[in-house]
């Protein structure tokens, strides 16, 4: 599993936000867009084009799966994280934490020098 998650990293900001939004549960496209806006405090927003471009990649990679829809032509298609998707998100968060630690350390060193 470790090997599987590592090959998907690093994630683009849009991909990270979409995966993060799906931790809220099973969501349709518009709900994902709203969740991304909410989670980022309105600082990051994606449109339908960006969303489905990323969902297509995530579906192909097996990080996200589509729920079985009734097929009545009216029900919105919903998506959810797979186990692999959860793992990749956790690995990316861990990776970003490392980057943040390093950035803070570098900034502290820089402040001491100046």
């Amino acid at each position: 599993m470790r090997h599987d998650t590592a090959e998907h990293l690093p994630l683009s900001p849009a991909t990270l936000h979409v995966l993060l939004a799906l931790t809220a549960g099973e969501l349709h496209g518009y709900a994902i867009m709203v969740e991304v806006t909410r989670q980022s405090g309105g600082q990051y927003r994606i449109g339908p084009g960006t969303l489905y471009d990323n969902l297509k990649k995530l579906l192909n990679a097996g990080l996200v799966e589509e729920l079985d829809a009734p097929g009545d032509g009216r029900t919105r298609r919903k998506y959810r994280l797979t186990e692999l998707g959860n793992g990749v998100l956790a690995a990316e968060v861990e990776r970003l934490s490392g980057v943040l630690r390093e950035a803070r350390r570098a900034l502290k060193l820089s402040e001491r020098r100046s």
Partner: peptide
């Protein structure tokens, strides 16, 4: 279809 629905809501 989903893009159109999302567009309407957005």
């Amino acid at each position: 279809r989903e893009m159109l629905l999302d567009f309407e809501e957005s």
